[in-house]
């Protein structure tokens, strides 16, 4: 019985995988189509845009934006936001170079609390605060429009460490 169940499960899984693969490739096609229009600034509906401001340690503000579902790391990468060394591990939770500091009220409103793995990485960051998060773990929602986050100083004298 167990064996039969396993075989059945495997069959269901492979069917599902094939279905997902199909959907995915359709989606990719759709995505490439739409990105083509995105670049022309047409299809991006106003309500999907989330404006974000990055504030450097020296107070300089960098205004940028992403769409709902993007991570803050995506926003930096997609818009070429000028932050040296940001996102070294490319969002795989193995470095803390995308460390960002939130205002307390914004931090409390974030839909997901940091997991152990994120906190482990944050523990290695400079200027760690109680409202620190990794940008790669923050997914933009519509409520976040107008969000302002602080970027810790990248040029830190590490020799003292």
């Amino acid at each position: 019985m167990l064996v039969i169940n396993r075989i059945r499960n495997a069959a269901i899984l492979s069917l599902r995988n094939a279905y997902i693969r199909n959907c995915l490739s359709n989606e990719i096609r759709a995505a490439t189509n739409s990105t083509r229009t995105f670049s022309l600034g047409l299809a991006l509906r106003q309500q999907d845009v989330v404006n974000v401001t990055f504030v450097r340690a020296n107070g300089e503000k960098i205004k940028s934006s992403g769409k709902v579902g993007d991570s803050l790391l995506d926003v930096v990468v997609n818009n070429n936001v000028d932050l040296d060394g940001f996102g070294a591990c490319e969002g795989t939770l193995t470095c803390s170079t995308c460390h960002l500091i939130f205002k307390e009220a914004d931090y409390e409103k974030l839909p997901e609390k940091p997991g152990d793995e994120e906190l482990d990485m944050l523990d290695l960051a400079y200027e760690l605060t109680d409202t620190s998060r990794l940008g790669c773990q923050i997914t933009l929602t519509k409520d976040m429009d107008g969000l302002e986050v602080q970027v810790p100083a990248t040029i830190n004298d590490a020799r003292a460490a």
Partner: peptide
């Protein structure tokens, strides 16, 4: 070579930028 063998890549990155 300058700092001695401490820290993670972030440490080296900040040091090299500095």
């Amino acid at each position: 070579l300058g700092t001695g063998p401490t820290g993670v890549i972030l440490t080296t990155m900040n040091g090299a930028f500095a």
